[in-house]
Design a protein around this nucleic acid. Structure first.
Length: 195
DNA sequence: CGCAGGATCCGCT
DNA sequence: GCGGATCCTGCGA
């Protein structure tokens, strides 16, 4: 199964517009072992420098956050504990903004995903969390800085989604007022949403 | 150079 | 529900 990367212009929209627009799109990763992909069903927006939960809060510019200060459409990967998390850089050049991919509905490459996830037996457990989906697709920190409009890691057109739900983000309990920002978006009723 | 703190996951209670 | 695993990163001394 082959997929076509989306046009670069797709990434040129405000972060709070791009985050819900990514729902229903396909996230695809090709490796020497094969291709795996899934429909995006849950995203979160992180908008520095005002957002306490964002890594770019206060315009913190380091080797890790550097890619977020560049043009949109590039991958911002980083390691959390023992897991790799995947973001799409968004917003204007000079603004540290990104969209975290929190959950997918598996589309292709099931054998590869089960193999990479080891003990997992249920399809539901393959990609229903930000650390799980990167492991299933084989996304690693070395993908940092890749363009998401070209092979081997890219966004492709997917399918229409029904209604989109909005709410506060997850796992950012130390972020004071930012805890309540309604910057999490998900496909209503989709079982793969991490919750 | 040391250490504290995570945008998480999994297994056990 | 809770805590441990485990690994950088970022910052202060």
């Amino acid at each position: 199964m082959t997929f076509q990367p989306i046009d670069y212009a797709f990434f040129q929209q405000p972060t709070l517009s791009l985050a819900p627009a990514l729902l229903g799109k396909l996230l695809v990763k090709e490796t020497e072992f094969g291709t795996a992909s899934g429909w995006i069903v849950e995203t979160e927006a992180y908008i520095g420098p005002e957002d306490r939960a964002a890594h770019g809060y206060g315009n913190r510019r380091t080797k890790r956050t550097e890619v977020m200060f560049g043009p949109p459409g590039y991958a911002y990967t980083y390691v959390m504990h023992t897991h790799c998390l995947m973001n799409v850089v968004s917003g204007e050049i000079g603004h540290p903004e990104a969209v975290l991919i929190r959950a997918l509905e598996p589309c292709s490459g099931f054998d590869l995903m089960y193999q990479r996830r080891g003990k997992v037996k249920k399809e539901l457990e393959l990609t229903n969390g930000p650390g799980k989906l990167t492991k299933s697709l084989g996304i690693v920190k070395e993908d940092y800085g890749r363009g998401m409009f070209e092979y081997p890691l890219f966004i492709a057109d997917g399918k229409e989604v029904g209604s989109i739900a909005v709410g506060p983000r997850i796992g950012i309990n130390n972020s004071r007022e930012a805890v309540h920002y309604p910057w999490r978006f998900w496909v209503e009723g989709n079982p793969f949403v991490s919750k």
